[in-house]
Design a protein around this nucleic acid. Structure first.
Length: 712
DNA sequence: CCGGGTAACATTTTT
DNA sequence: TGTTACCCGG
């Protein structure tokens, strides 16, 4: 067996990771250090050396895109599809398990996945049904509460009763929510993981089967793992599995939705005999860019400690543009892009929050630069697509209340809110499904004639579509549905651009169905519907068209571009004001900045605006502390026609300022009046040096000279 | 049932 | 300030 092609292209640490004999391996892989390569080569190596059968390998990722990519790279390395190997996201693997073991998981065979949209809808209804004030218990935060609990592995019954009035309400909502989900057979995203975890805990024989099967488990983006995912993994791996996790603590940017970096630290404690491999050679960015990234992230505390290096030349320095306002900034970027000869596909404009994109778009349009915005709504989340999917769901299951409520009067067929309310109450009182309620109301003429015949029209429509589409394949059914239901006609009537894109999207759905048949060799309606809720539907597919990418820093993770523009590096915006007062939040912002910088291969341009109009009022924010954390020698300030050296305020990096004060950023300190605190940032030198300290109650700027701070 | 008026809102997002 | 969700009048 010739495995040299798997080994030769690797550098030393990569090889060490790929060929390790350790049972548990933690690969700390910096940005651009080849982590996917390690993962895929490792899998191919295991299979080709006979240490594992592809049947016994499970590889888990966070996004479908990553899973797809991994699968295809494994396939091309092994020169054949990895038969029987499980490669997928946590959610899709959990879904698969639950589908297979639906009985043990106490789910109906045709359970459906509830996406966040439907989930919110359901929570809204519950809040209303419980007669709770929806300003005090906002459905959004109730949804957040529920998901947060589930992410921690906690069901209603696990949470002790609270004395807090507000939390009592939340718990009531949670309880009711669990009940309805179970009754109607729907499972939300967090529930998929929770159930899959419980499935194993409650069914040792099922667990044993998978433990014996999956001798090798590999995890990508390990720093993003949350508690329930961690628990799930741990149970699966048991005592005997070989586990390799790959991640980068410096790129953990999803703490706010439950990801726990600490799981990286815990790894060595929870699993015995862990071998740690660090991948620190970066193959992506040129020297200045990389050194700047290192300098920024160096201000974080509690890191596992990695320092990226490159063989590459220093390359271009990072350009820094101080704009007057956000329009000047956007105009500058558009101008600059216009003057480059690079391909548009190789350029990206990254920003902290979506609100920033509009001004940039305006100026790109003005310069006729093609662009593509990433993020925003997923294909399958679009209104028209969801509606069509709900028709499909009705084919599968007439008692899918969520789906039925959505489409019963869409397109409008004369069933008003009042009729729907009556039906809902009827259904609830009788303990029957929406569909059954509708049938009975028609049968017993409970509502006025006009309403009854409208409802009857809906019932027969669904039944007719179902019976007539009996012999059709998935794509044909989809096509049939959007026509029979009048959805197409309905959107065609919509005026303007909107209607047209909606019609196009519906047609796109038909081709999505067609390619689903081809790709997965499957024409099963239920599979298609699940896949739709678990898959983003690959946002924008027309990558062959040259266009500049616009996206938030979060969505940029995992991508790389020759030329990157980081816009809006201002205090309050980046670091964002919602996060900057909390030390952990600030560190996460800094990691986000690190992610941003390391997206660039050759050119990086950072900009900030001295004034910015946000939500109607003009703000004057200081430039971001992150800019100041980049050592001078990597930066070059640009003005339009002349090059100006950096202003005085940039001459010292925070590190330098702090070094002669005896304190460090992130250090715990004690203040005679304010008590315990943490140093967040600093500015000025000598007698002017000030530090920003986060105390328990507040955040304060203190002159180092006068404040009697002592290190703790 | 539509569409206008208005009040509330505005990190980050995958599954 | 721009968007969006929701309410009410025609």
């Amino acid at each position: 067996m010739d495995i040299s092609r798997l080994i030769d292209p690797l550098n030393e640490p990569q090889r060490q990771a790929v060929c390790t004999d350790s049972q548990h391996t933690l690969v700390l892989a910096g940005a651009g250090s080849g982590k996917t390569r390690v993962l895929t080569h490792r899998i191919a190596y295991l299979v080709e050396t006979g240490q594992a059968s592809s049947f016994g390998v499970l590889a888990v990722t966070f996004t479908n895109k990553a899973a797809k990519e991994m699968r295809s790279r494994i396939e091309s390395l092994m020169m054949q599809p990895p038969k029987g190997m499980w490669v997928g996201t946590f959610h899709s693997l959990a879904h698969r398990l639950l589908k297979t073991h639906y009985v043990e998981a106490k789910l109906p065979e045709q359970f459906q996945v509830l996406d966040s949209d439907d989930q919110l809808r359901l929570v809204k209804r519950i809040v209303k049904d419980l007669n709770l004030d929806d300003t005090k218990w906002q459905p959004k935060s109730a949804q957040w509460f529920i998901n947060g609990q589930k992410d921690e592995g906690k069901r209603f019954k696990h949470i002790p009763p609270s004395s807090d009035f507000h939390e009592q309400g939340m718990l009531k909502i949670y309880e009711q929510y669990e009940l309805i989900c179970q009754q109607t057979g729907v499972v939300d995203f967090a529930e998929l993981l929770l159930r899959a975890h419980e499935l194993w805990l409650n069914n040792p024989e099922v667990l044993k089967h998978y433990q014996e099967r999956f001798r090798h488990v590999l995890v990508d983006e390990y720093q993003d793992i949350n508690s329930i995912q961690y628990a799930w993994l741990r149970v699966l791996c048991g005592e005997n599995a070989n586990l390799m996790v790959v991640g980068d603590d410096d790129q953990s940017i999803y703490g706010w939705r439950g990801a726990k970096v600490e799981n990286i630290l815990r790894f060595s404690e929870d699993f015995p005999k862990v071998e740690t491999v660090k991948l620190e050679q970066n193959y992506r960015s040129s020297g200045h860019i990389l050194k700047a990234a290192n300098a920024v992230i160096d201000n974080n505390s509690g890191r596992l400690g990695k320092e990226l290096w490159t063989d590459d030349e220093d390359g271009e320095t990072i350009r820094l543009y101080a704009a007057y306002n956000e329009h000047d900034e956007a105009r500058f970027i558009a101008d600059d892009i216009d003057g480059q000869s690079d391909e548009f596909n190789e350029m990206a404009i990254l920003y902290r929050s979506n609100a920033q994109s509009r001004v940039i778009e305006e100026h790109l349009i003005r310069m006729s630069i093609p662009y593509r915005i990433f993020g925003g709504h997923r294909f399958y989340d679009r209104l028209e697509i969801k509606n069509a999917m709900c028709y499909l769901r009705m084919m599968l299951n007439r008692h899918d209340d969520t789906a039925m409520e959505r489409i019963i009067n869409l397109p409008v067929r004369g069933i008003g809110n009042k009729s729907i309310d009556t039906m809902r109450i009827f259904a609830r009182d009788q303990g029957i499904s929406f569909w059954q309620a509708a049938s009975q109301i028609v049968e017993h003429k409970i509502l006025p004639n006009r309403a009854c015949s409208a409802i009857e029209g809906f019932l027969t429509l669904i039944n007719d579509i179902d019976s007539q589409s009996d012999e059709m394949n998935l794509a044909e059914i989809t096509d049939f549905i959007i026509k029979q239901s009048n959805l197409i006609a309905h959107h065609q009537k919509e005026k303007g651009e909107k209607g047209r894109t909606r019609v196009e999207n519906l047609k796109e759905l038909v081709s999505a169905a067609a390619s689903f048949i081809n790709e997965s060799d499957n024409s099963d309606l239920s599979e298609f519907v699940s896949q739709a809720s678990l898959d983003a539907g690959d946002n924008q597919a027309d990558t062959h068209e040259q266009a500049v990418s616009l996206m938030t820093l979060h969505s940029a993770k995992g991508l790389e571009f020759d030329r990157v523009y980081l816009a809006g590096l201002e205090e309050q915006l980046f670091p964002h004001k919602m996060s900057m007062d909390d030390p952990d939040g600030l560190q996460e912002e800094r990691r986000l900045c690190y992610v941003g910088i390391t997206r660039a291969r050759k050119h990086l341009c950072i900009s900030y605006a001295e004034s910015r109009r946000l939500y109607g009022n003009e703000q004057f924010n200081a430039s971001s502390r992150f800019i100041r954390e980049i050592p001078n020698e990597h930066l070059q300030e640009i003005r339009l026609n002349s090059q100006v050296s950096r202003p005085v305020m940039f001459t010292e990096t925070p590190k330098e300022i702090m070094s002669d004060s005896g304190f460090q950023l992130g250090q715990d300190v004690n203040h005679p009046v304010f008590g315990r605190g943490v140093i967040l940032s600093c500015e000025g030198i000598g007698t002017n040096a000030r530090v920003e300290v986060q105390f328990i109650e507040s955040t304060k700027w203190l002159m180092l000279q006068f404040a009697k701070l002592e290190a703790v």
